[in-house]
Amino acid sequence: MLKTAIIAGLLVFICYGGNWLFGQTMIERPLVVGALTGIVMGDVRTGVMMGAALEAIFMGAVDIGGALSAEPVTASVLATTFAIILNVDQKAALALAVPIGVLAAFISMFMKNVVMNIFAPLVDKVADENSSKGLTLIHFGMWFLNYFTFSLVTFIGVLAGAKPMQTFISTIPKNLMAGLAATGGLLPAVGFAILLRMLWSKELSPYYFLGFILVAYLKLPSVAVAVLGIILVIVNAFRDKQLLDIENKQSKQAKQSGTQIVDHTDDATQEEEDFFS
């Protein structure tokens, strides 16, 4: 279990910390984190399935202003690890992922607003000294401290929380476990609802209802609906390009026509001046 805890901690550090190290690389998304966890834990199928389900939950979780959303990396690693190592039902593991993500988000808020502010005077001092080397060391030192904290939380959660979690799960009544499974099945719908609330518009509503009909009544799988969506995007892109070309052509013709009218007017004015002279 110690090896598993170390691997889980390293996954969080690499996926969460490495995401912003070279820019936004998207390796912190649950779909990627779940797949990587499944690879290193020896169950790729469960990792991919957990990652896809967690992506549906957390894709609408966005920090806006002072709003606090769940942190997906820690939740994805712990939930996927529990599902693979402890053989927890996948839907029950999904239900456990949300409170874990909220707890990790509070830790992130504490690190950014309290711990990192302790180093603010040191940053100002080094900046006044115009020491680029000192700023670089402080920057990467604070980066390591911040993401190492999440790795440590994950390490402790897997190492110390594995046996208690397994004991706790074994004592959960079947009815309660069924309720957790049902809740886990509803969470992706909540994630899509949050995302849809931000993206909803009258122009996009026909595509939403089209997708609903294809899935609910025609029973098409998600892959088929996704491929159909890509086809619609390509068709709309070609149509928009044609409309743009027509507008540019009409605008060019209008400019040429206006130029010709101005030229004729100048010729007429010159003829009048020559006549009266």
Rank of each mutant, 00 (worst) to 15 (best):
A127E: 14
A127C: 06
A127Y: 09
D128A: 15
D128N: 14
E129F: 02
N130Q: 11
S131H: 06
K133C: 09
L135Y: 00
L135M: 14
T136S: 13
L137C: 05
I138P: 09
I138T: 00
H139F: 04
F140P: 01
G141T: 12
F144M: 14
N146V: 03
Y147L: 10
Y147D: 08
F148W: 09
F150I: 03
L152H: 08
V153D: 08
T154W: 03
T154Q: 11
T154C: 15
F155E: 11
G157M: 05
V158K: 00
L159S: 05
A162R: 00
M165W: 13
M165P: 04
M165R: 02
M165A: 04
M165E: 05
Q166F: 00
T167F: 15
T167Y: 07
F168A: 13
I169M: 08
I169D: 06
T171I: 00
I172R: 01
K174S: 07
K174F: 03
K174C: 00
L176F: 13
L176H: 11
A178L: 08
G179A: 12
G179K: 09
L180D: 03
A182L: 12
A182R: 01
T183H: 12
T183D: 10
P188I: 06
P188M: 10
V190T: 07
V190S: 12
V190A: 11
G191V: 02
A193G: 08
I194K: 15
L195P: 02
L196M: 00
M198Y: 09
L199I: 05
L199C: 09
W200E: 09
W200F: 15
W200G: 04
W200N: 07
S201G: 08
S201L: 14
S201K: 09
E203H: 01
E203S: 08
L204N: 02
S205G: 02
S205M: 14
S205C: 07
P206N: 08
Y207P: 03
Y208L: 12
F209Y: 12
F212I: 08
I213V: 10
I213R: 06
L214Y: 01
V215L: 09
K219A: 12
K219T: 11
L220D: 01
L220W: 06
V223H: 02
V223A: 04
V225Y: 09
V225D: 03
V225L: 06
V225S: 07
A226E: 08
A226G: 13
L228V: 03
L228D: 09
I230P: 01
V233E: 10
V235E: 07
V235S: 05
V235R: 05
N236D: 15
R239M: 05
D240G: 04
D240A: 11
D240S: 11
D240E: 11
D240I: 04
K241S: 02
K241H: 02
K241M: 02
K241W: 05
Q242K: 13
L243H: 10
L244G: 10
L244Q: 13
